[in-house]
């Protein structure tokens, strides 16, 4: 995320230089800084992967927003239909994320996606306990969360 810090600094410099303190001025500065870092400085090792990083972040944000909306439609369906079809359960998901920040982000995103609510992390940080609304197949649910985790980790690492 060092590239991002540089990009924001370049955007702020652009805003300061042009004197255009608005959202669009900031966006233009960010875009120009992104092109500068991604294209002209791509031989510098620190910025080498940066040009691919921002589209990935954007794609992940859209992926996350879609999941959020889907999860809410699912909740709407749950709330408005009889509760007889629900099959709640708690499963343990092994974690590949190690640092505090990664685990926090992952747990938050799990809580905001369809039918799952993260409950707690074990003290030795090996597993995350997740409450599922529809637990038909525990292994499948576990794989779904692992897929989500892999998408998040490829972004952060």
């Amino acid at each position: 995320m060092n590239g991002l810090t540089w990009n924001i600094m370049l955007a702020l410099i652009w805003v300061g230089m042009t004197g255009n303190f608005t959202g669009s001025g900031m966006a233009i500065g960010f875009l120009l800084g992104y092109l500068l870092l991604g294209v002209t400085l791509r031989d510098v090792p620190r910025f080498s992967g940066y040009i691919r990083k921002v589209p990935r972040v954007v794609r992940f944000v859209f992926f996350f927003l879609r999941e959020l909306v889907v999860s809410n439609l699912r909740v709407a369906y749950d709330v408005l239909t009889p509760t007889d079809y629900m099959r709640p359960g708690v499963i343990a998901v092994p974690l590949d994320a190690h640092t505090d920040g990664e685990i926090t982000l992952l747990a938050n995103m799990i809580s905001l996606t369809p039918g799952s609510l993260s409950l707690d992390v074990s003290t030795d940080r090996r597993v995350l306990y997740v409450h599922m609304m529809y637990l038909d197949d525990p292994e499948q649910a576990r794989e779904q969360i692992k897929y989500f985790e892999s998408r998040l980790l490829e972004l952060l690492r």
Partner: peptide
């Protein structure tokens, strides 16, 4: 009617 509780 909880299906499975691995936290127990």
């Amino acid at each position: 009617r909880i299906v499975r509780d691995e936290l127990k």
